[in-house]
Amino acid sequence: MTLSSPLPADDPAAASGSQQGHANHTLTGFVIFLLSESVIFLALFAGYIVFKMSSPVWLPAGVEGLEIRDPLLNTVVLVSSSGVAWLAERCLKRQKLVSFRLWWLLTMAMGSFFVYGQAVEWLHLGFGLGDGIFGSTFYVLTGFHGLHVITGILLMGLMLQRSFRPGNYDKGETGVVAVSLFWHFVDVIWIVLFVLIYVWQRS
């Protein structure tokens, strides 16, 4: 992972640190963080798959399965918000600050819609956290992902507030690029989760 681009041994310019800006460090560090964070989800996915395939009791008594229609709508909104975030980023690169703010706000709104939809779903389910392995995995996985969505929205709020500081984004927009990467990451995780939890219901 970290060795994917080894620098040539005798090329001083490529191997040098002092000429490179701090922004590059931030992005490198952030990508390393995301890779590490993705391993948590990989571990949880692996655990879920093992439980789903091997557990003698899966659904708690009286539960038929999960309703898929509203979560699907939620999924579509969240996944398309990634495209909106990309539009916002592009506007910022072209120095169009106002349209950046609009697209960025729309991304935040779509993220908030997802969180709202998830909260509504949680409140109307017929089982709880303590209802066997199904309840445990469902709430912990969707909850842990939801926490990431909320973090993403808060980070976007911070970036939005920074856009009102005059000249803040003149030298580059590392923060926005990083948050946007985080958002795409959260979306990809959700696609996997959606397939695992909602689509793969029959065993």
Partner: peptide, 17 residues
């Protein structure tokens, strides 16, 4: 994250892997 980023990006001129 800090140590890996530092070693990847902040080596002195001429210090290849």
């Amino acid at each position: 994250i800090n140590f890996v980023t530092t070693i990847i990006r902040m080596r002195a001129p001429g210090m290849g892997w």
